[in-house]
Amino acid sequence: MTTAHHSTEDEKRSAVVTGASTGIGEATVRALAAGGWQVYAVARRAERLEALAAQTGAIPVAADIAEDDDVARLLEAVTAGGGADTLINIAGGARGTDWIAEAKTEDWEWMLRANVIGTMKITRAFLPMLRATGRGTVLNLTSVAGLVSYEGGGGYNAAKFAERGMTRALRLEEAEHNVRVIEVLPGLVKTEEFTLRRLGGDADAAEKVYAGVEEPLTAEDVADVVRYAVTVPHHINLDEIVIRPVAQAAAHKLIRRGA
């Protein structure tokens, strides 16, 4: 995906990308760095960030965005590095597929902390910086799980519905500061860790999620859309972008061909 619309405002852009140690976050760091952006790659796993930084030139900052001290340290590092005009919130994830009757409290608490509380804390911390640029951007990666609920998805649905609600409120609150707020809602994406982690490390069960699906989305597919959304001229706000593979016509319709 490319855009022919470029302006001087797109030069020397700087972004903070969370969830950067794997999957869509890592792919987004690579996509932006390849486009000449200064990128702060944020995640908890320092060793993976260091490897990513060596390959891309990104600035690694190991941090848990749900921890206040880590967020403060991240903000200090970005400020010292010259600041950022874009915050891309990709950190999050799912735990478990239990129906609500068997819901595990610890899984729900983890999902709400990772997807909602962490996103709120880092956004709250960086809003003054984004406002000060005069053309700040916040992009939140949510999910089609924030649009339609499904059996076994109650906890993840709750987290993504909440993150989506927060995103929509933020757009209303920050328009007067010329901060655009973008939401990208992916459907079925096959990444290295998302489903594996959700299913407790069961590789066979994780592979069955994608069985027979021709060309599920990749992390790079979603990262390309994210890159496009934050690179178009600032007066354009791509409010909500739903991205699914063709095989996933809707939440209840997934085409599987063969075993």
Score class of each variant (00 low, 15 high):
Thr2Pro: 00
Thr3Ile: 14
Thr3Met: 02
Thr8Arg: 13
Thr8Pro: 01
Asp10Thr: 11
Asp10Ile: 05
Lys12Arg: 14
Lys12Tyr: 12
Arg13Asp: 07
Val16Met: 03
Val16Trp: 03
Val17Trp: 09
Gly19Glu: 01
Ala20Asp: 13
Gly23His: 05
Gly23Trp: 09
Ile24Asp: 03
Glu26Ala: 12
Glu26Trp: 04
Glu26Thr: 02
Val29Gln: 13
Leu32Asp: 07
Ala34Glu: 15
Ala34Arg: 11
Gly36Arg: 08
Gln38Arg: 15
Gln38Ser: 15
Val39Gln: 09
Val42Arg: 10
Glu50Gly: 06
Ala51Gly: 06
Leu52Gln: 12
Pro60Trp: 04
Val61Thr: 03
Val61Tyr: 08
Glu67Lys: 08
Glu67Ala: 13
Asp68Gln: 10
Asp68Ser: 05
Asp69Gln: 10
Asp70Pro: 01
Asp70Cys: 05
Arg73Asn: 11
Glu76Phe: 04
Ala77Arg: 13
Val78Cys: 08
Val78Gly: 04
Thr79Met: 03
Ala80Cys: 05
Gly82Met: 02
Gly83Trp: 04
Ala84Asp: 04
Asp85Asn: 05
Asn89Gln: 04
Gly92Cys: 12
Ala94Arg: 10
Arg95Lys: 14
Thr97Gly: 01
Ile100Gln: 00
Glu106His: 04
Asp107Glu: 14
Glu109Met: 01
Trp110Lys: 07
Met111Asn: 05
Asn115Trp: 10
Ile117Cys: 01
Thr123Asn: 09
Phe126Lys: 07
Phe126Thr: 05
Pro128Phe: 14
Arg131Asp: 14
Thr133Arg: 15
Val138Thr: 07
Val138Cys: 08
Asn140Asp: 14
Asn140Ser: 10
Leu141Asn: 11
Leu141Arg: 09
Ser143Trp: 08
Val144Arg: 00
Val144Gln: 02
Val144His: 00
Leu147Trp: 10
Val148Thr: 15
Val148Leu: 03
Gly152Lys: 01
Gly153Lys: 11
Gly155Asp: 05
Tyr156Lys: 09
Ala158Ile: 02
Ala158Thr: 11
Glu163Phe: 02
Arg164Ser: 04
Gly165Leu: 06
Gly165Thr: 07
Met166Asp: 03
Met166Trp: 06
Met166Thr: 03
Ala169Val: 14
Leu170Ala: 05
Leu170Thr: 03
Leu170Trp: 09
Leu170Asp: 08
Leu172Ser: 07
Leu172His: 10
Leu172Phe: 09
Glu173Asp: 13
His177Ser: 14
His177Asp: 13
Arg180Val: 00
Ile182Met: 05
Ile182Asp: 00
Gly187Phe: 02
Gly187Gln: 05
Leu188Met: 15
Val189Tyr: 03
Val189Lys: 06
Lys190Val: 04
Lys190Glu: 14
Glu193Leu: 10
Phe194Asn: 07
Thr195His: 03
Arg198Phe: 00
Arg198Gln: 12
Leu199Glu: 02
Gly201Ala: 11
Asp202Tyr: 13
Ala203Lys: 15
Ala205Thr: 04
Ala206Gln: 06
Ala206Lys: 14
Ala206Val: 03
Val209Gln: 12
Ala211Thr: 07
Gly212Thr: 08
Glu214Tyr: 12
Glu215Thr: 15
Pro216Glu: 04
Leu217Glu: 12
Ala219Ser: 15
Ala219His: 06
Asp224Thr: 15
Val225Gly: 04
Arg227His: 14
Ala229Cys: 15
Thr231Lys: 01
Thr231Ala: 13
Thr231Met: 09
Ile241Lys: 06
Ala249Lys: 13
Ala250Val: 02
Ala250Pro: 00
His252Lys: 12
Leu254Val: 14
Ala259Glu: 11
Ala259Arg: 11
